[in-house]
Amino acid sequence: MLILGLDIATTTGFAWYEPGSSLSSVKTGLIKAVGDNAEEKAASLAQQLVAMFKAGRPDFVSIEQPMRNVVSFKKTKQTLAGPVDEQTINPNALQLEGLVCAAVAIIAAYRIPWETIPSATWRKHFLGMGRSPGFDRAAWKRAAVDRCRAFKIDVKNADAAEAVGIAIAGEACQRFKMLRERTAA
């Protein structure tokens, strides 16, 4: 059974993983969502997934779950009258949700079983630690790349390395286990 792991963003990392095969056989790559706005980027990602599925279809897709909360923060903006504090959000958080939904829509249209996996869950499964004090985004990405190199998995960047972790963690999902049992029967 073939698992496709997706670390979705404007540059989406992907990894094809076959449980039971050598980890060095994992194939990775990147999809660049292009467009002038979030909707065009979601359409671009969807079209590239369609092309990918025409070339080879996974049995299961595991996707990093986007953050479920949108956090607001204060930002100081310089104006002619001086500094002004304003409340804002990270607009990428909203775009990320749209990209994930576009991917899930395509995956569901192909009737491929899928699961979203929280980052702490796949990191604990792949890296051996789910949340670690002092680890920032860059440290997590380095850890994923280092782990792939230790397994002799060829990755172009951290997005592809994280997709490997997401794909491998997909094997531990209940939905994948049930799928494997059904197909074995």
Rank of each mutant, 00 (worst) to 15 (best):
P133D: 15
S119W: 04
S119V: 09
L127A: 02
C101Q: 15
L127T: 00
A139T: 10
A108H: 11
S132L: 15
P133L: 07
E97A: 07
I89N: 01
A138R: 15
G98S: 06
H125I: 12
L96G: 02
F126Y: 11
I89A: 05
H125W: 10
A102F: 06
T116C: 11
L127K: 04
A139R: 04
F135D: 05
P113C: 13
P113W: 09
F126A: 00
K124E: 12
F135L: 02
T121N: 03
D136C: 01
V100K: 09
V100Y: 00
H125E: 05
D136W: 08
A105E: 11
A120R: 09
M129P: 09
S119H: 11
K124T: 02
F126N: 01
V100F: 07
I106S: 06
A120G: 12
I89S: 07
G98L: 06
I106Y: 08
V104Y: 04
A102I: 00
H125Q: 12
D136K: 09
G98V: 07
P91S: 12
P91L: 10
R123T: 11
A102C: 02
A120D: 13
I112M: 05
T121I: 10
T121E: 08
A108Q: 11
K124D: 08
R111S: 14
I117K: 03
R111I: 08
V104M: 13
G98I: 07
H125C: 06
L127S: 01
R131Q: 13
I107C: 03
I117G: 06
V100R: 10
Y110M: 12
R123Y: 04
L127Y: 06
N90I: 09
I89E: 00
P133A: 15
I106N: 02
T121S: 11
A103G: 04
A108C: 05
N90L: 11
A120H: 12
T88E: 03
T88F: 03
R123E: 05
R137A: 14
W114C: 14
F126S: 07
W140E: 15
P118T: 01
P118H: 05
E97N: 13
W140A: 14
P133S: 09
L99Y: 03
R137K: 14
A102P: 02
P113F: 06
T88H: 08
A105Q: 13
Q95N: 12
Y110G: 01
G134R: 08
K124Q: 12
R123F: 10
K124R: 10
W140C: 11
L127W: 05
L94S: 09
V100N: 07
T88N: 04
A138W: 15
G98F: 00
E115N: 12
R111W: 09
G134D: 07
E97I: 14
I106V: 15
Y110F: 13
I117R: 02
L99T: 08
S119Q: 05
K124F: 11
G134L: 01
I112E: 03
A102H: 00
P91V: 15
E115D: 09
T121R: 00
W140T: 14
V104N: 05
A109R: 04
L94T: 14
T116F: 00
T121Q: 06
D136A: 10
S132H: 10
G130I: 07
A138G: 02
T116A: 03
S119A: 14
L99S: 01
T116G: 15
C101E: 15
A109W: 10
